Amino acid sequence: MSDLALFALGAIAVLLLVLLKERLTGFAAQRPQDYLDGGPEMDIRRHLNGPLICEGVLYGPLGRVSARFVAQMHGSWDGNTGRLVEEFKYDGGTQQRREWFLTSKNDGSFLAEAPDVIGVGQGVQMGSAIRLNYRIKLTQSAGGHELDVTDWMYLLEDGALVNRSQMRKFGVKVAELVATIRPVTP
Protein backbone atom coordinates (compact mmCIF):
# COMPACT_ATOMS: atom_id res chain seq x y z
CA MET A 1 0.00 0.00 0.00
CA SER A 2 1.35 3.42 -0.93
CA ASP A 3 2.22 6.12 1.58
CA LEU A 4 -0.59 8.30 0.22
CA ALA A 5 -3.17 5.53 0.71
CA LEU A 6 -1.93 4.94 4.28
CA PHE A 7 -2.13 8.66 5.01
CA ALA A 8 -5.69 8.82 3.64
CA LEU A 9 -6.75 5.80 5.72
CA GLY A 10 -5.19 7.37 8.81
CA ALA A 11 -6.96 10.67 8.18
CA ILE A 12 -10.29 8.89 7.76
CA ALA A 13 -9.71 6.92 10.97
CA VAL A 14 -8.93 10.10 12.92
CA LEU A 15 -12.04 11.82 11.52
CA LEU A 16 -14.21 8.85 12.48
CA LEU A 17 -12.75 8.82 16.00
CA VAL A 18 -13.43 12.55 16.43
CA LEU A 19 -17.02 12.12 15.23
CA LEU A 20 -17.51 9.08 17.48
CA LYS A 21 -16.11 10.98 20.49
CA GLU A 22 -18.52 13.86 19.87
CA ARG A 23 -21.46 11.48 19.52
CA LEU A 24 -20.63 9.52 22.68
CA THR A 25 -19.34 12.23 25.02
CA GLY A 26 -20.34 15.64 23.70
CA PHE A 27 -23.44 17.77 23.40
CA ALA A 28 -25.18 15.22 21.17
CA ALA A 29 -24.69 12.41 23.69
CA GLN A 30 -27.24 13.88 26.14
CA ARG A 31 -30.65 12.27 26.46
CA PRO A 32 -33.72 13.68 28.21
CA GLN A 33 -33.71 10.63 30.49
CA ASP A 34 -30.36 11.82 31.89
CA TYR A 35 -32.26 14.56 33.77
CA LEU A 36 -35.03 12.53 35.38
CA ASP A 37 -33.31 12.34 38.77
CA GLY A 38 -32.21 15.38 40.69
CA GLY A 39 -33.08 19.01 40.26
CA PRO A 40 -36.42 20.74 40.01
CA GLU A 41 -39.19 19.49 37.71
CA MET A 42 -39.48 21.34 34.39
CA ASP A 43 -42.89 22.34 33.03
CA ILE A 44 -42.80 24.61 29.98
CA ARG A 45 -46.30 25.89 30.76
CA ARG A 46 -44.98 27.28 34.04
CA HIS A 47 -41.34 28.11 33.24
CA LEU A 48 -41.95 29.72 29.83
CA ASN A 49 -44.85 31.82 31.04
CA GLY A 50 -45.22 35.53 31.69
CA PRO A 51 -42.52 38.16 31.13
CA LEU A 52 -38.98 36.77 30.81
CA ILE A 53 -35.54 38.25 30.17
CA CYS A 54 -32.95 36.38 28.14
CA GLU A 55 -29.26 37.32 27.92
CA GLY A 56 -26.70 35.41 25.94
CA VAL A 57 -23.92 35.03 23.43
CA LEU A 58 -23.68 33.40 20.04
CA TYR A 59 -20.46 31.62 19.09
CA GLY A 60 -19.36 31.26 15.47
CA PRO A 61 -17.87 28.15 13.83
CA LEU A 62 -14.39 28.80 15.30
CA GLY A 63 -15.72 29.00 18.87
CA ARG A 64 -15.34 32.77 19.25
CA VAL A 65 -18.17 35.04 20.37
CA SER A 66 -19.77 36.48 17.24
CA ALA A 67 -22.71 38.29 18.87
CA ARG A 68 -24.17 39.22 22.23
CA PHE A 69 -27.88 39.74 22.78
CA VAL A 70 -30.65 40.58 25.19
CA ALA A 71 -34.21 39.44 24.53
CA GLN A 72 -37.48 40.43 26.11
CA MET A 73 -39.75 37.39 26.04
CA HIS A 74 -43.35 36.79 26.99
CA GLY A 75 -45.07 33.43 27.26
CA SER A 76 -48.81 32.87 27.56
CA TRP A 77 -50.72 29.61 27.85
CA ASP A 78 -54.29 28.46 27.40
CA GLY A 79 -54.27 24.91 28.71
CA ASN A 80 -51.70 22.99 26.64
CA THR A 81 -51.43 25.60 23.88
CA GLY A 82 -48.86 28.35 24.31
CA ARG A 83 -47.34 31.33 22.58
CA LEU A 84 -43.83 32.63 23.27
CA VAL A 85 -42.85 35.99 21.76
CA GLU A 86 -39.13 36.84 21.67
CA GLU A 87 -37.77 40.33 20.89
CA PHE A 88 -33.97 40.14 20.41
CA LYS A 89 -31.57 43.07 20.40
CA TYR A 90 -28.03 42.23 19.28
CA ASP A 91 -24.89 44.18 20.19
CA GLY A 92 -24.44 45.23 16.57
CA GLY A 93 -27.82 46.98 16.56
CA THR A 94 -29.77 44.25 14.75
CA GLN A 95 -33.20 43.36 16.10
CA GLN A 96 -35.12 40.15 15.56
CA ARG A 97 -38.59 38.95 16.52
CA ARG A 98 -39.68 35.34 16.74
CA GLU A 99 -43.08 34.04 17.76
CA TRP A 100 -43.27 30.42 18.84
CA PHE A 101 -46.51 28.46 18.96
CA LEU A 102 -46.20 25.58 21.42
CA THR A 103 -48.39 22.54 22.03
CA SER A 104 -47.67 20.56 25.18
CA LYS A 105 -48.75 16.92 25.28
CA ASN A 106 -49.56 14.81 28.33
CA ASP A 107 -46.56 12.51 27.81
CA GLY A 108 -43.99 15.32 28.29
CA SER A 109 -43.45 15.90 24.59
CA PHE A 110 -44.34 19.13 22.83
CA LEU A 111 -44.48 20.66 19.37
CA ALA A 112 -42.96 24.03 18.45
CA GLU A 113 -43.71 26.13 15.37
CA ALA A 114 -42.44 29.54 14.26
CA PRO A 115 -42.41 31.36 10.90
CA ASP A 116 -38.67 30.76 10.36
CA VAL A 117 -38.84 27.11 11.46
CA ILE A 118 -39.17 24.58 8.66
CA GLY A 119 -41.84 22.06 9.59
CA VAL A 120 -42.58 21.41 13.25
CA GLY A 121 -40.00 21.28 16.04
CA GLN A 122 -40.10 18.21 18.27
CA GLY A 123 -39.52 18.72 21.98
CA VAL A 124 -39.49 16.70 25.16
CA GLN A 125 -39.32 17.73 28.79
CA MET A 126 -38.07 15.30 31.43
CA GLY A 127 -37.01 16.07 34.94
CA SER A 128 -35.13 19.36 34.99
CA ALA A 129 -34.46 19.66 31.24
CA ILE A 130 -35.99 20.32 27.84
CA ARG A 131 -34.63 19.22 24.47
CA LEU A 132 -36.03 20.74 21.30
CA ASN A 133 -34.95 19.78 17.77
CA TYR A 134 -35.93 21.85 14.74
CA ARG A 135 -34.73 23.13 11.38
CA ILE A 136 -34.46 26.90 10.95
CA LYS A 137 -34.12 29.11 7.87
CA LEU A 138 -31.87 32.09 8.54
CA THR A 139 -32.71 35.50 7.15
CA GLN A 140 -31.04 36.52 3.89
CA SER A 141 -28.92 39.03 5.83
CA ALA A 142 -27.57 36.09 7.86
CA GLY A 143 -26.87 34.00 4.74
CA GLY A 144 -30.27 32.35 4.20
CA HIS A 145 -28.91 28.96 5.31
CA GLU A 146 -31.05 26.15 6.66
CA LEU A 147 -29.63 24.80 9.92
CA ASP A 148 -30.49 21.88 12.16
CA VAL A 149 -30.83 23.14 15.74
CA THR A 150 -30.80 21.30 19.06
CA ASP A 151 -31.82 23.39 22.07
CA TRP A 152 -31.28 22.18 25.61
CA MET A 153 -32.75 24.14 28.51
CA TYR A 154 -31.83 23.28 32.08
CA LEU A 155 -33.97 24.47 35.00
CA LEU A 156 -32.16 25.93 38.01
CA GLU A 157 -33.50 25.91 41.58
CA ASP A 158 -34.51 29.60 41.43
CA GLY A 159 -36.66 29.14 38.29
CA ALA A 160 -34.06 30.47 35.86
CA LEU A 161 -33.19 28.47 32.74
CA VAL A 162 -29.80 27.96 31.14
CA ASN A 163 -30.17 27.50 27.38
CA ARG A 164 -27.48 25.87 25.26
CA SER A 165 -28.11 25.42 21.54
CA GLN A 166 -26.05 24.04 18.72
CA MET A 167 -26.68 24.75 15.06
CA ARG A 168 -25.41 22.37 12.42
CA LYS A 169 -25.21 22.27 8.66
CA PHE A 170 -24.56 18.90 7.02
CA GLY A 171 -23.85 17.57 10.55
CA VAL A 172 -21.04 20.08 11.18
CA LYS A 173 -21.45 22.54 14.07
CA VAL A 174 -21.50 26.07 12.68
CA ALA A 175 -22.76 28.01 15.71
CA GLU A 176 -23.55 27.65 19.39
CA LEU A 177 -25.68 29.76 21.69
CA VAL A 178 -25.50 30.01 25.48
CA ALA A 179 -28.09 32.09 27.33
CA THR A 180 -29.96 32.51 30.57
CA ILE A 181 -33.70 32.97 30.73
CA ARG A 182 -35.31 34.18 33.92
CA PRO A 183 -38.65 35.57 35.02
CA VAL A 184 -38.89 39.35 35.15
CA THR A 185 -39.49 40.40 38.73
CA PRO A 186 -41.50 43.55 39.38
Rank of each mutant, 00 (worst) to 15 (best):
I130Y: 06
R98I: 00
G123Q: 03
L48M: 10
T139G: 15
S141D: 15
N80V: 00
W100Q: 02
E55Q: 10
S141Q: 15
G56A: 03
A71Y: 00
E86D: 13
T94L: 15
V57G: 02
D151N: 07
D91T: 04
K105C: 13
Y154E: 06
R68H: 09
M167Y: 14
L58T: 01
G56P: 04
Y59N: 03
G171N: 04
P40S: 09
A129Y: 08
G119W: 00
E146T: 14
P61A: 14
F88E: 07
G39V: 07
G39R: 09
E157A: 04
G63M: 00
Q140M: 13
N49W: 05
L177S: 07
Q166M: 14
P115H: 01
V120K: 02
E99C: 10
C54P: 13
R168M: 11
F69V: 10
E87W: 00
L62K: 08
G123I: 00
Q96Y: 04
L138A: 12
N80K: 13
G63F: 11
L132W: 08
L48C: 10
R97V: 12
P61I: 08
D151E: 05
Q122V: 13
M153W: 03
R168E: 11
S109E: 06
G39H: 12
Q140P: 15
G60C: 02
G75A: 00
D151H: 05
G38F: 09
S76L: 11
L84W: 04
N49A: 15
L147D: 05
G92Y: 02
A129W: 08
P40I: 06
M73V: 14
V172H: 03
N80G: 15
R98T: 07
